Computed example of a mutant assay.
Amino acid sequence: MVVVREALTSDARDILTFCRQIGSESDNLSYGHEGLGISVSDEEKLLTKVHEDERSCFLVAKEADELVGTCNCSGFRKARLSHRAEIGIAVKKAYWNKGIGRKLLTRLINLSRQSGLKILSLEVRTDNKGAIHLYESLGFRRIGTFEDFMEIDGESIDFDIMELFLEKS
């Protein structure tokens, strides 16, 4: 059974290992097999900052002792943007299409509402139909496209920008 919970600073090493694995499994992320390129100590500091910021959160999905998914929400510090947050989500390829992404996002959306956030935004590859379907089923809507958002092996890749208005959903 997969359990979703808030990340602890003690999860830092597992999160970095997870990121290296998923970066090598998928071209849907802003990083590849190198992962995030930060130290365990730096990840611990980031997780501590997330815990201290009421408009940010970091969730992990674990099956037994295996980290199988993450979902995070980063609020903006500037007062004029404090009603918004950007989110990121990743699930190990072996666990795709098993409801883990929905479980993570549902929890993140509920926590975001409780924190007073009004808008969540994300970027998703325009050809990632499965992820787009999930986001739309949870109320996100496409508001535009970043053309040539990423380049992988010389190929330009477009990303859709999607938003969820928490007060309207």
Rank of each mutant, 00 (worst) to 15 (best):
V2N: 08
V2T: 14
E6H: 09
L8G: 13
S10W: 01
D11N: 05
A12E: 01
A12T: 03
I15D: 05
I15M: 14
I15L: 13
R20A: 00
G23P: 11
S30T: 15
Y31R: 00
G32Q: 05
G32P: 11
E34P: 01
L36K: 14
G37A: 02
G37Q: 06
G37D: 02
S41I: 10
D42L: 04
E44S: 06
L46R: 15
T48V: 07
K49D: 09
H51D: 15
E52H: 13
E52S: 09
E54H: 13
S56T: 14
C57I: 06
V60I: 10
V60D: 03
V60S: 06
E63R: 15
A64E: 15
E66H: 04
L67C: 01
V68A: 03
C71A: 15
N72F: 03
N72G: 12
F76Q: 11
F76M: 07
A79K: 15
R80G: 15
L81R: 12
S82W: 00
A85M: 08
I87W: 05
V91M: 07
K92E: 03
K92I: 02
K93L: 03
K93I: 02
A94C: 08
W96K: 09
N97S: 13
I100Q: 03
R102I: 01
R102G: 02
K103H: 07
L108V: 09
I109S: 07
R113V: 05
S115M: 04
K118L: 04
I119W: 07
S121F: 11
L122S: 11
V124H: 08
V124Q: 09
R125S: 10
R125E: 13
T126W: 04
D127F: 07
N128A: 09
G130Q: 10
A131L: 00
I132E: 11
S137G: 09
S137K: 11
G139W: 00
G139I: 02
R141F: 04
R141T: 12
R142S: 11
I143G: 06
G144N: 03
G144F: 00
T145C: 14
D148W: 02
E151N: 14
E151P: 02
I152R: 04
G154P: 03
D158I: 05
F159R: 14
D160P: 00
I161H: 08
M162I: 05
E163W: 01
F165W: 15
F165R: 15
L166Q: 05
E167A: 08
